[in-house]
Amino acid sequence: MSESYVSGASPTPFTVPAGKTALLVIDMQRDFLLPGGFGESLGNDVNMLRSVIEPLAALIAAARESGVPVIHTREGHLPDLSDCPPAKLNRGMPSQRIGDPGEFGRILIRGEYGHDIVDELAPIDGETVIDKPGKGAFYATELTEVLEDAGITTLLVTGVTTEVCVHTTVREANDRGYECLVVSDCVGSYFPEFQRVGLDMIAAQGGIFGWTSPSDDVIDALRELTPSPALHTNRI
């Protein structure tokens, strides 16, 4: 099948075109999701994010089986913090800051254990991994080139957190002309009210930024696609 539909998507059914769709998995990193990590050090309940792992693992498996490329992102910085502006480094009053020693190495520093993706969702050989210094996946990264090279027009967006990196990326993608569906049980926030409002904002006013749908409906649509060649660009 050249395309399928997520019939239960909000605000309208969503088209999933074969060969032009990618699954974007945003920042499912140990620093954010593991007990004892950076996220928990800020006073957050990491179980709010960990609830995303199981449905997202099933969605990733369905994408791989359907030939839909999976692109992973990791938020983090160079060891010398030269790509981390003071406006980000000094924002707020956390117990620890980016670059400080943490439970899993220096916090949000590329190459450290905590910077990498949780084991349950680890990329496989050939899948793209994008290291990003900002909230959005397009800023100061090669994501645009990766998508253009593969002919991608449609993104299934997942990851954490809903109101920060997911929202920023969807807004960036919308401005660049990509059609986005945010998979509602495959994105997570430390704050339930942010999760609810964040999803509502995306699909409001006829889909001002995109669409939303639970993963079961998305998986059903993926299974109807004719498998197409996966994205071969490897950024691991």
Rank of each mutant, 00 (worst) to 15 (best):
V170T: 06
T161S: 12
G76Q: 13
P69C: 07
D31N: 09
N174L: 07
S2I: 12
Q195T: 05
P123L: 06
L56W: 05
G39E: 01
I117M: 01
P229L: 00
R176N: 07
I98T: 10
L222D: 03
G43C: 00
G102C: 08
D175E: 11
I71H: 07
T21L: 02
D200R: 15
S184A: 08
C180L: 08
T128S: 11
M201A: 15
G43T: 09
L231S: 08
P101G: 05
P94D: 04
P133L: 01
L89T: 06
H167Q: 14
G67Q: 11
R64V: 03
P11W: 09
V146T: 09
P192V: 08
E3S: 14
H115S: 13
A221R: 04
G134W: 11
I98S: 02
D100P: 08
H77K: 07
L121N: 03
G188K: 01
V6G: 06
Q96I: 14
I124Q: 15
L222E: 00
H77S: 01
L147C: 10
I208E: 15
T233F: 12
N90T: 13
Q29K: 04
E127G: 07
L33H: 05
L81G: 01
V164K: 08
P101L: 08
P133M: 02
P192F: 11
I117D: 04
S95Q: 11
S228N: 13
E193C: 13
V16L: 14
V146C: 05
P94S: 00
E112C: 09
R97Q: 03
A62S: 14
R223M: 12
A62T: 03
S215A: 09
A9L: 12
P133K: 12
F194D: 10
G76C: 01
V25F: 05
G92K: 11
K135W: 14
V166M: 08
E142M: 14
N234F: 15
G92Q: 04
V160S: 09
D27C: 04
S4Q: 02
I26V: 14
E145S: 15
A62M: 06
L147A: 05
S184T: 09
L155D: 00
A18C: 11
T168G: 10
S2Y: 14
L225R: 02
A61I: 05
I107Q: 02
D31W: 00
P79Q: 04
G159W: 03
R30I: 06
M28V: 06
D83K: 04
C84K: 07
V166W: 05
C165P: 01
I71P: 03
M1Y: 12
I152N: 02
C165G: 08
E40S: 04
